[in-house]
Amino acid sequence: MAKSNPLVFLQQVRAEAAKVTWPTRRETLITTVMVFIMVAAAAVFFLAADQAMSWGVSYLLSLVR
Rank of each mutant, 00 (worst) to 15 (best):
F46D: 07
L47C: 07
V44H: 01
V33K: 12
V64D: 07
P6V: 01
E27F: 04
P23A: 03
A18W: 01
W55L: 12
V39S: 06
R25K: 13
W22A: 07
L60M: 15
A40Y: 00
R14L: 14
A49H: 03
V57I: 14
V33L: 15
Y59I: 05
R14F: 12
E16M: 08
V33Q: 11
L29H: 12
A18G: 04
A52E: 03
A2T: 14
V33N: 08
A42G: 11
F45T: 06
A17N: 10
S4Q: 14
F45I: 04
P6C: 03
L29N: 08
T24L: 05
L60C: 06
M34E: 14
A18L: 05
L7R: 10
A18S: 08
A41I: 06
Q12H: 06
F9S: 10
S54Y: 10
T28S: 07
L7A: 07
G56D: 03
G56V: 01
V64P: 02
A2L: 09
T31F: 00
R26K: 13
V20Y: 03
T32I: 01
A43K: 02
R65Q: 12
N5R: 03
T24Y: 05
L10W: 00
S54E: 13
A15R: 11
F45D: 01
V64T: 09
T24P: 00
T32A: 14
M38E: 04
V57H: 12
A42Y: 05
I30W: 08
R26V: 13
Q51H: 09
V57L: 15
E27Q: 15
V64E: 11
V13K: 07
R65A: 06
M1Q: 13
A52T: 04
A52R: 09
R14V: 11
P23N: 02
A42L: 14
F46H: 08
L29W: 09
P6T: 01
V20F: 05
T31A: 15
D50E: 07
L61F: 01
V35Q: 10
E27P: 04
V44A: 13
T28V: 06
E27M: 05
V57Q: 13
L7W: 00
V64A: 11
E27C: 03
D50K: 15
Q11R: 13
I37E: 11
A43I: 04
